[in-house]
């Protein structure tokens, strides 16, 4: 099982299980919910934070948070 922190630039995935107790509610409110799509747009220099497109919302989160969110990769055709 991989997490958002394992995505490579440009990769898309479907959000799966997440460690709900530790994830900020604000992130869920922005649309980071199981079943929604996430795309890694860019990683900041020094490998942190991450720039994501979640459910059509563009946002950046720190790697420590990204590690708590499991994803299933969408295979590129």
């Amino acid at each position: 099982m991989s997490t958002i922190a394992d995505l490579k630039k440009g990769q898309k995935a479907i959000i799966g299980e997440m460690n709900a107790q530790e994830i900020p509610l604000k992130l869920l409110e922005m649309g980071c919910l199981p079943g929604n799509q996430v795309e890694l747009i860019q990683i900041a220099p020094f490998r942190d934070p991450l720039y994501l497109n979640i459910n059509d919302t563009f946002l950046s989160i720190r790697k420590e948070t990204a590690k708590l969110i499991n994803v299933n990769l969408i295979e590129d055709e």
Partner: peptide, 9 residues
């Protein structure tokens, strides 16, 4: 507080 920053258009 958490680091969740919107990247607006």
């Amino acid at each position: 507080t958490y680091f969740v920053v919107e990247m607006p258009n």
